[in-house]
């Protein structure tokens, strides 16, 4: 069964409605969560320090801002810093850029997904949640092309459906699930 595949990394993208979704999702992630989880959430120009704190409070896993040149550690949740694109290099470290916006946003979910796919290929799990634009769809398409696993929040269940809708239209998904079932699915893969 596919749930047996070994997952090394989870990437997650969301925008409008995304913080609420993460607040519901993160408390359910297992303490035995083994990979690392990297998040791009379009949260505005302000820093993500506060968001790290809020999410850290509800989650069993530590939540930190991704720092350039550091390598992500297992069992940690990382948020992309505001105003920078976040990449995962081939050798595994985080890298940042202020390259032009993609889909009108920086950080871009597409950029994180593509670079993480190049690094982890079939051992990558990518998740698209609630959001108001098309960012993430091309990245998810690339993740799937390289054999990664894709979970998209059911648009019917999402606070703002455009992002999961675009992901399904452009990339498709291995699972389309309501938020309440996404954590269970991630835990199956990752604990």
């Amino acid at each position: 069964m596919s749930a047996r595949r070994r997952i090394e990394a989870v990437v997650l993208g969301c925008s409008a409605g995304g913080v609420q979704a993460m607040l519901a999702l993160f408390p359910k992630l297992s303490v035995d969560f083994k990979p690392y989880l990297i998040v791009v959430c379009h949260a505005g120009a302000e820093g993500v320090e506060l968001l790290c704190e809020v999410l850290g409070r509800v989650s069993a896993l530590p939540v930190r801002e991704a720092a350039e040149r550091d390598s992500p550690q297992p069992g940690v949740i990382y948020l992309a810093p505001a105003g920078y694109h976040l990449y995962l290099e081939r050798e595994g470290q985080f890298a940042l850029s202020i390259d032009p916006k993609v889909c009108f946003v920086r950080p871009s979910i597409d950029i994180l997904f593509e670079s993480a796919a190049a690094r982890h290929r079939s051992k990558l799990l990518a998740v698209v949640l609630s959001g108001a634009n098309e960012d993430g769809a091309r990245g998810l398409q690339y993740v799937r092309r390289l054999g990664g696993y894709a979970i998209v929040q059911d648009p019917e269940d999402a606070a703002v459906p455009q992002m999961p809708e675009a992901a399904l239209r452009i990339a498709g998904a291995d699972d389309v699930l309501p938020l309440s079932e996404i954590a269970t699915r991630i835990n199956e893969f990752c604990s």
């Binding site: 995962l88 593509e114 670079s115």
Partner: peptide, 9 residues
């Protein structure tokens, strides 16, 4: 140059 962003450009 860091490869991931270079590749994209």
């Amino acid at each position: 140059y860091a490869r991931a962003s270079l590749k994209r450009r």
